[in-house]
Design a protein around this nucleic acid. Structure first.
Lengths: 356, 356
DNA sequence: CTGAAAGCGCTTACAG
DNA sequence: CTGAAAGCGCTTACAG
């Protein structure tokens, strides 16, 4: 009756050997019962179960996967830029759900925009012999993963395609999404439309700029490079850029923010200037609470759930042995009018805006 | 010169044995070089390094941890309600950062509010022999973890304390935070203050209600249970609750939303009714973009970074062998006035509001 | 239906 | 300074 619970010495974890000894059978019989292999008599099955229960035996999956012929660890790796970014956290959740149905867990990690961290994390995951990898690439060269790929670690890229590597990828139709956003603004009577973009080293940033060009080209409007501001990575930079754009002569009457942090900066700038009902705005990517703003912010939404689910499903097909040629899946975007994108521009006609 | 790269058969991964054979040394010497153990001649070290490079050898951490005397997998588990919830995703990121400095990766999983999933995830993590566990508990009984704890898996609880289990916990001062929120509203001349709460089965929900009671008690105001709405789990429920509260005779002039989803519902309801400048509001937990609303929403913020960092640091102290009595760390909140909480109530005096 | 031996890829505990 | 043998906890490939 002494109170030794608090300072209990960590007992050794029981092993199959312990269960075998207690139930008076061989190791192999315990293994059969634990793995639900058929062909063990009811009597022995019961004895093993009771012994396992009594000892509180829990199988060691790492030992089992080491010996097992397929070598599966029932673990996959997920390389993100930042697990706490809402878009990526949503991606993570979808991937987790697909994995969970198969008894697989996910090791996720953040590499910011650091190529060295991307490689270090990949190494750490491979060292743990994950069954596969889902990567949102940061660096501009994923050829370092080719050896791993050939060694039998399947990998799927998400949101951004791999560079210098042939692998599956699940992407958003960034150019088309951006083009539709610009066409929406054109339809509402805007001709001078500002573009706010992220680092041009990020493939999605370039694709969205391409969509901007495409829309203007199709409309026969020449692109004015003074309206294009790139390499913006944070909302305060976007805020400054908007102030500058609107202060210039021949200022834009509408703005396209090609990433959610930049959209925040634009909203902030317009509200501070009190011009939120005058300058039209369409943003790329979701933003919470945006419908409570006045005006609401018109957004181009990616299919985050679709991206995550598809990436995970393709990965598991590969893990299951599919060796077909690499696949590229492109998911469409949706433009959701909320108010800011429907502000009429100087070229608006009486019929403008009825389409949306 | 045939193009076999595309259909390359997965080569077997090279092992230490392969490196030993190629460099003409023993397995043990390779192990010494790989683990940077001292006392290997420069000559052999070079030969081993070259062979490893040539074969593209990468050590198998799962095999090494199986044999290693400390048995560490350099992996920890994180049990959350939802990895995509902003509060939890931020927690995840902080924990990841602390882990990364030690070469440890994080397996995180979501259990929603499902006790069965909580146990299943814990089992999956233990099967992989994680070095420790950080848990945001969902169920109302964590005694099932006692055996794991005694078997030597350290664990730290975060955000919510464990039930029926003695373990470290890092928590927010929920009652105090709620009390300060109510005192803020009282100071601005409100006497009838609505309370919106989550499921009373969630400990933090109860603590925040306690803070509400405390503030009113201290002010000598009797609690009117008609103003208290509990078991609200989603923003639309909060929206309905606000409509009902404000429609009642002797309606509240201020509202305290004790959780971020509920705050969203209140904002939505007030904006729809056009009463956002009339009814005061303080919310618990962070909400993005809230400063762009009109009025901005006054919030009680938790120290998310502090919670995550502290939980991880305590866990690693335990993993390193600290066997001291279990610790409970309570982090303070911060009230950030943004406008909605400073709307004056019917009992406001001329000096009201100067304090904040 | 049951089990003894070997081995997954590595480290430990020795011996030389 | 180097290495041969044993073993971490389990599954494989047999044999009975």
């Amino acid at each position: 009756m002494t109170n030794t619970q608090q300072t209990a010495v960590p007992r050794q974890r029981p092993t199959m050997r312990d269960v075998a000894a207690l139930s008076g059978v061989s190791l192999k019989t315990v293994s059969r019962v634990v793995n639900l292999e058929p062909g063990v008599s009811d009597d022995l099955t019961d004895r093993v179960r009771q012994a396992a229960e009594q000892l509180d035996y829990h199988p060691n999956l790492t030992a089992s996967s080491l010996r097992r012929s397929d070598g599966k660890t029932q673990t996959i790796g997920l390389i993100l830029e930042d697990v706490s970014n809402p878009f990526e956290a949503a991606l993570h959740r979808r991937i987790e759900e697909v994995a969970r149905e198969r008894g697989v867990v996910v090791i996720a990690g953040s590499v910011d925009e650091d190529e060295v961290r991307e490689r270090d994390l990949a190494t750490a995951l491979v060292a743990r012999r994950v069954d596969g990898l889902i990567v949102m690439p940061t660096g501009h060269d994923q050829s370092y993963l080719a050896k791993e790929q050939r060694s039998g670690t399947p990998m799927v890229f998400v949101d951004r395609p791999p560079t210098f590597l042939d692998a599956d990828a699940v992407l958003t139709a960034n150019a088309t999404g951006a083009r539709i956003a610009i066409e929406h603004l054109l339809a509402h009577g805007h001709r001078r439309i500002g573009f706010l973009g992220d680092l041009p080293s990020i493939s999605t940033a370039i694709e969205r700029l391409t969509g901007y060009h495409d829309a203007l080209d199709r409309a026969g409007i020449s692109v004015d490079s003074a309206l294009i501001r790139q390499a913006l990575t944070a909302s305060d930079q976007a805020e400054v850029a908007v102030a500058e754009l609107l202060a210039a002569p021949d200022a834009p009457t509408a703005i396209f923010a090609s990433q959610n942090l930049l959209t925040i900066g634009v909203v902030r700038a317009l509200h501070h200037m009190g011009r939120q009902h005058e300058i039209a705005l369409v943003g790329f990517d979701d933003l919470p609470l945006v419908d409570l703003l006045n005006p609401g912010v018109t957004l181009v939404l990616q299919d985050v759930a679709g991206l995550g689910t598809a990436a995970a499903e393709i990965l598991f097909r590969r893990i299951d042995g599919d060796t077909g040629p690499s696949e590229r899946m492109i998911l469409p975007t949706t433009l959701v009018p909320k108010g800011s994108g429907e502000i009429l521009g100087p070229y608006a006609t009486s019929s403008t805006g009825t389409a949306s």
